[in-house]
């Protein structure tokens, strides 16, 4: 398996048209992959733990006045993550200063890509270890998968959306290298996460 050198981008932007626009733009370029896009920042921390972005493109309008302190502190965003503002209305300079870069609604394709590529040079992707241990959340989800639950049932059991279940599944597959449900069941059995009584 080759190392993953693409920059992972997460978008928080209220306008669906703008989100779609970013999606189609990023689809065409190498070096970047859109891992998630959301209208609302309230679950940003969970999104970050699921999608593991390198870059967050964030519309500062979504910061309400009461938490205009530090965006990073408020959403618990790690320092090594690149935070980009996407601006199409007036935003307080104090807020803008907290971002690593600013994209505006008037930027054309080339300009947006140039800015992203400059950032990529400034912050080269550190090579991720090829294998990581499953997080405790992923282990819980894996157990549910091994027991034969559907995505919908898993979502209901763990109080998460189907979309989040699918993201967890992708991470489980990436980390274990095992794709089929019966393979994951076998993995769970071998690691004593479930017993035979759970599947027979």
């Amino acid at each position: 398996m080759k190392a993953n050198l693409e920059k992972r981008i997460l978008i928080i932007e209220p306008s669906p048209i703008v989100r779609e626009g970013f999606k189609s733009l990023l689809d065409e370029v190498k070096g970047f992959v859109l891992v998630g896009s959301y209208a609302d920042p309230s679950q940003l921390e969970e999104h970050c733990s699921v999608h593991r972005p390198d870059i967050i493109i964030f519309n500062p309008v979504l910061m309400s006045h009461q938490h205009r302190g530090s965006i990073r502190n408020f959403f618990n965003i790690r320092e090594e993550l690149t935070l980009i503002a996407f601006v199409y209305s007036f935003v307080d300079e104090l807020i803008i200063q907290q971002f690593d870069a600013v994209l505006t609604i008037n930027d054309d394709r080339t300009r947006i890509l140039n800015k992203l590529q400059i950032l990529q040079k400034e912050h080269p992707v550190e090579q991720r270890p090829e294998s990581e241990d499953l997080s405790s959340r992923e282990t819980e989800i894996l157990i549910s998968i091994a027991k034969g639950l559907t995505n919908k049932e898993i979502g209901e059991k763990h109080f998460i959306s189907i979309h989040t279940v699918i993201s967890h599944r992708k991470n489980i597959v990436r980390k274990t290298g095992i794709k089929s449900v019966s393979g994951l069941t076998m993995y769970a059995l071998l690691n004593n996460l479930i017993g035979y009584e759970d599947i027979e």
């Binding site: 274990t176 794709k179 019966s182 993995y187 071998l190």
Partner: peptide
């Protein structure tokens, strides 16, 4: 997919 999984299991997880 299952053949890949089988190889992974034998190489890594037993």
């Amino acid at each position: 997919i299952k053949l890949d999984d089988l190889k992974n299991i034998i190489i890594k997880y037993i």
